[in-house]
Computed example of a mutant assay.
Amino acid sequence: MTPSVLLDGIVHGDPAGQRRAMAKAITLLESTRADHRAQGDELLTALLPHTGKAFRLGISGVPGVGKSTFIEALGLYLIDKGHRVAVLTVDPSSTVSGGSILGDKTRMEKLSVHEQAYIRPSPSSGTLGGVAEKTREAMLVCEAAGYDIVIVETVGVGQSETAVSGMTDMFVLMQLPNAGDDLQAIKKGVMELADLVVINKADLDPDAATHARAQITSSLRLLGLHGHPEHAHHDERIWHPQVIQLSALLGRGVDAFWAEVSRFRALQAGNGQLAARRQQQARAWMWERIDAGLKQRFRAHPKVRAALDNATQRVLAGTLPASTAARQLLDLFD
């Protein structure tokens, strides 16, 4: 399909045709072939006027915290409220085989077959942060197709949370009731990225969930004031990260969760922070793609390719400092 045909199918197609066009468009955008990349750029430019109206929600958490169960419960709740929900899930790629199970869709049995939902699993492909490199572009496809809630679920390990926070309007971190002590809650700088912390499986140990909520609330308050003494907790013009308990499996607390998200959206839209956040993300996205493109062109440069193996061997043998090798190769790229 040409970009113009894909555009028409995404924006104006019937339900079946639209899904097919979306799948083909995202596959095109994920391709690394130069001709596909050019077609993808043409498609994205054409899609842009139809995007920007959806709310982008990022959800992360350690494996086993119940992300897929929660997203299914939330998605069905939102569809009942009249929304159209797109879910972009990122599965870790094996460092050995390079493959990915892409199993999130199978864990959302009801949501995956609903006509008002669209679920697209993608492999992380080793991308730093665990978020598939083209997730941002896939979000634009979903928005252009009329999905007004786009959920990005990612691998909850390492610094994947940073990448999700950098492409969504709101970042939700899911925790277990007995996840650990106070320091566990704020390690690696993950907690300070969260706009909302959800303690899932609260039904298993209500006391532990209540204790965890108190600990995390205290940690968030300290993090919020650190370096920002003007962010007084009673200032209602500024969003202060909240902590809530719920049970996704039993469907309890989903309405309270969405009430907090709606309050966040209204507040951030009103004070201009939502628009500012998207502008910062667009700038960061541009520079990220520049960095990736420069690296790709550097590796493809004839002089660099001719000298790379020899320089690598000398670095490995300890006869050439890595920094010197890098500078010499960069000089060849000039």
Rank of each mutant, 00 (worst) to 15 (best):
D255E: 12
H114D: 15
R213K: 15
D309E: 14
Y118G: 01
A284I: 04
T217C: 11
T106N: 11
N178R: 12
D331M: 09
M139C: 07
G99Y: 07
T106F: 11
A202R: 04
L274N: 08
I199E: 10
F70N: 05
F264C: 04
I101Y: 10
A212P: 07
L246V: 02
K81N: 05
H50M: 07
H36C: 12
T51R: 04
L193F: 08
I199Q: 10
V87T: 05
E72T: 03
G61S: 08
E109H: 08
P121Y: 01
A212T: 14
V315D: 02
R19G: 00
L28E: 04
L43P: 06
D91T: 03
S122F: 08
L225M: 09
R84E: 03
M286S: 11
L329G: 00
T312V: 11
Q281Y: 00
Y118Q: 00
P123H: 07
K110M: 08
S125L: 13
Q273Y: 11
L183M: 15
S68T: 07
Q159W: 00
V172E: 04
Q273L: 13
A317T: 07
H211Y: 13
L6K: 00
A284W: 02
A276N: 10
G75M: 06
S4E: 15
R33H: 13
A269P: 03
F257P: 02
M22F: 01
Q245N: 11
V155Y: 03
G9D: 03
E230D: 12
D182R: 15
A276E: 15
M139H: 05
P121M: 00
L320P: 00
A34V: 14
L294D: 08
M170F: 10
L111Y: 01
R33T: 09
D203G: 07
T210N: 13
L173R: 05
T210V: 14
I10C: 07
R237N: 10
A307M: 10
F333Q: 08
H36I: 04
E133A: 14
A21F: 05
D8Q: 13
L6S: 01
K295L: 14
M174K: 02
F55V: 14
L57S: 04
A54D: 03
S4R: 14
T27N: 13
R314P: 08
S4F: 10
H228L: 08
G180D: 06
S112R: 13
